[in-house]
Amino acid sequence: MAERITRADVEHVAQLARLALTEEEIVSLTGELGAIVDYAAQVSALDTHDVPPTAHPLPVVNVFRPDEARPGLPRDEVLAAAPAAEDDRFRVPRILGEEP
């Protein structure tokens, strides 16, 4: 059976998911996720011994296109849609701890 989801679980998962949740969201999600996971845990009632998982409904593997050069997306249009661009690249805030 499902273990009860705690506030600490929600804070940990929010960090994994890169969500800066508000205090109100942490409180409400703790209860909501608990109820949903309790419901979803009924899948554990089924005996799946020796049952393989299905990741995909179709038996399609190793699909290749012909190896022909095709134009990629137009760079100017792509960069125009970005929040910030510089020198034909996406501009982001600093990544590591160095001084700017």
Binding site: R18, L19, A20, V78, A81, A82, P83, A84, F90, V92, P93, R94, I95, G97
Partner: peptide, 17 residues
Amino acid sequence: VRYGLRVDAEDVAHMNA
């Protein structure tokens, strides 16, 4: 990074979140 909204922050991880 590549499209849509950005809320600026001091580094990338905080900007993402």
